[in-house]
C-alpha cells in the first residue's frame, strides 16, 4: 500500500481520536479502547473511502472486523486486492 496514504490515514485518525498529541501505534486499539467513539466511527469510514477509494460497509464498523490500526490496514488491503 502507498506509504503516503497510510501516513495520511494515521494523521486523520489522530484528529478524530480527540488526542492530537498522541502518536498512534499500529497496535493501539481504536474501538475497544474508546479512542474512536461511536459518533466518530462513520468519520473513519468516510476517511478510508476518501483516501483509498474503497468502501467500508457499516456492518464492518465493529470490533468483529478490526480494532487496531494494523487490523484496519489489513481490512483495507483485503478490499484493494478484491
Amino acid at each position: 500500500m502507498d506509504i503516503e496514504k497510510i501516513t495520511q490515514l494515521r494523521q486523520q485518525i489522530q484528529i478524530i481520536c480527540q488526542q492530537p498529541n498522541k502518536v498512534l501505534s499500529d497496535e493501539d486499539k481504536l474501538l475497544s479502547s474508546g479512542l474512536i467513539d461511536s459518533f466518530s466511527l462513520i468519520d473513519l469510514a468516510l476517511i478510508v473511502e476518501d483516501i483509498f477509494k474503497v468502501r467500508i460497509e457499516d456492518t464492518e464498523l465493529s470490533t468483529d472486523s478490526f480494532d487496531s490500526f494494523a487490523d484496519l490496514l489489513n481490512l483495507i488491503k483485503m478490499k484493494l486486492d478484491e
Partner: peptide, 19 residues
C-alpha cells in the same frame, strides 16, 4: 501535554466521554 493526555485518557476510559 502529558498531563492533558493523562486527563483525556482517564476520562475516556472511566466516563466514556471524549474531551
Amino acid at each position: 501535554e502529558r498531563i492533558a493526555d493523562a486527563i483525556r485518557k482517564k476520562v475516556t476510559k472511566e466516563a466514556s466521554v471524549a474531551l
